[in-house]
Design a protein around this nucleic acid. Structure first.
Lengths: 340, 340
DNA sequence: TTGAAAGCGATACCAC
DNA sequence: GTGGTATCGCTTTCAA
């Protein structure tokens, strides 16, 4: 490969290749299309020159005519939740394997969301993975555009949308079962942000099961998914109750970790001997020996694969009906809770 | 906003808007260009209709003619290093503020890199942020294409390339100074992967300073940035030395954390009383109370800002000479080391 | 199998 | 300030 730009500073185009080979531009184009009818000889000659020139088809020009950008938007909100970056990387890899690129959209302030949506549409992405909150109106917008989209871990009641979820409620029920059968009687819950549907489901799932099992002492405090709020949540629980509960159920792992640290280092309480703590997500640090958290791990690999397939299927076939795929989490018994 | 696609199923174009308003298509186009000369009245009428129709200029068509995609590729390799996802999110936000989108490229296997580069070029990105390894040949390729690129935390000797770095060597020297002046005499080092330039610099920086300070007992073992390798690294050090060193210098925080946990939970050794541990990066978990790590924090905000500016400046002005910006880290004294 | 020509949806330059 | 018209680099009929 010698030149990669022409003398005039422009990128090499299929015309340049065509001229050099002495064939038509359409011939060159065909050579780069997998199933096209081109003679072996032609393809060989064209590819040779293309290679020498460093020619690569311009994906933007292609998109314009094919009306396929081979790009998918992934929208994530800036979260304290350690878990999302992993999801992002996995999504990118799954898409990449299928020849689709990820265009990244991160929300800092919720208010930016309108600007953001305009951007998403402008870039003509073939689909959208939503790992951020979205209002009903915004969903309407997406639907009107006819762009396939799938929610990642957020479900909308009364809405037939594509979604890939981990079963938050089931997971919490398992955790509660495990704790109650192991003799815990008084419970503290540290919830996530109120506007997070995941958090709402988790808290609700736990509360529901605690009620079914006839547990009387249940106190809920509000957190925001952060380490600090896990720590302060524990202190708040102690204040409210006048003493510590037997077990604290946290809406995610990071808060559970904050909670454990507060118990040990601020209150001098032994975990799990004097206090059991459980989380949710199965992030990397949950397995670190200092924490060894009892938690429910989300099957990230399978979930991202599902999200990717659902989108790409609907890019091919837009008329496919909405689908919701719910995956069970994996209960991980760790040393952060006294378990029978 | 009522229709967002026309009856024929195609997206709304500037022609549709123009027809409805009764003006030319170029007029519509101008209305969406910030500094263009359009009368207030015209703009108002056009915008009204555009809004009703849900018209948004097609960024792909625009890119084709302007030769600006307003997209930048960010290449990251799948790292165990917790630190990169944060960098990614920050880059995305900095670019986003300046109207540029991030097209994400994640490498799983190094071998994929050629395919990947073709992809990057095909998408006509305006620039590339490299947070992954890159061979000399690949750099040649980038340079031939004339696409501005900047390395994030990797410097290439003997190469005039754009780079934003944290001063790894200086940081390690600080850490060593701090440990030596606090009375540590025997040292263990857990390095990162050998093909990571960051790791090489860190290890080398520490070794260099230890030598200058005439420290006799220095043992190096190989890690891979992971929690587990931090843990096994400590065990290996103990094996090699027959006892523990006074201090372990780890090439990143995650390994330092693994090392602390191994000390406490596998060897029953008190940190920092019997062993000092230091890391590098300043990731979130380093501040968790269980670890309270002495480390050097990378100024991620400033570094990402620098990377974004450097790229965008060179998109505007391709002739700018290569520049290397090195930022000092921030020494964080934590409870993981006995410090004077 | 190959080539010519018509778009894709915008921007930019040019007259008016 | 506004409207025509020529691109941008490709894919895709349609004839040959």
């Amino acid at each position: 490969m010698s030149d990669v730009r022409r003398r005039d500073g422009h990128r090499v185009t299929s015309y340049d290749v065509a001229r050099l080979v002495g064939v038509s531009q359409s011939a060159v184009s065909r050579c780069f299309k997998p199933g096209a009818s081109v003679s072996k000889k032609m393809r060989a000659r064209v590819m040779k020159v293309a290679d020498d020139l460093g020619y690569q088809p311009n994906a933007i020009a292609r998109s314009l005519i094919t009306r396929r950008s081979n790009m998918v938007a992934v929208v994530i909100s800036q979260q304290t939740n350690l878990y999302y970056p992993e999801v992002l990387v996995q999504l990118s890899q799954r898409f990449s394997e299928r020849g689709v690129r990820v265009l990244l959209f991160t929300l800092e302030h919720e208010s930016d969301i309108d600007v953001l949506y305009n951007q998403i549409f402008q870039y003509q992405v073939d689909g959208v993975v939503e790992a951020a909150r979205l209002s009903g109106e915004q969903i309407d917008l997406m639907e009107q555009r006819g762009i396939p989209f799938v929610f990642y871990n957020r479900s909308l009641k009364d809405r037939r949308v594509n979604a890939v979820c981990c079963d938050q409620i089931e997971g919490e029920r398992w955790l509660v079962n495990r704790l109650v059968e192991s003799g815990h009687e008084t419970f503290g819950l540290i919830s996530g942000p109120e506007d997070s549907s995941v958090s709402v489901e988790r808290t609700q799932g736990a509360l529901e099961r605690l009620k079914e099992l006839d547990v009387k002492s249940v106190t809920v405090v509000l957190g925001d998914y952060s380490y600090e709020s896990g720590a302060s949540g524990l202190l708040e629980l102690k204040n409210k109750l006048g003493k510590l509960p037997d077990a604290v159920v946290c809406a995610n792992d990071v808060m559970a970790i904050g909670c454990m640290d507060a118990a040990r280092y601020r209150l001098g309480v032994k975990v799990p001997d004097e206090l059991s703590v459980v989380g949710f997500d199965g992030v990397g640090p949950a397995q670190w020996q200092s924490y060894d958290l009892t938690t429910v791990r989300q099957p990230v690999r399978r979930m991202t694969e599902a999200a990717v397939s659902m989108i790409l299927e609907r890019v091919e076939e837009p008329e496919l009906p909405p689908e919701k795929r719910t995956f069970s989490g994996i209960l991980v018994d760790g040393g952060s809770a006294r378990l029978a």
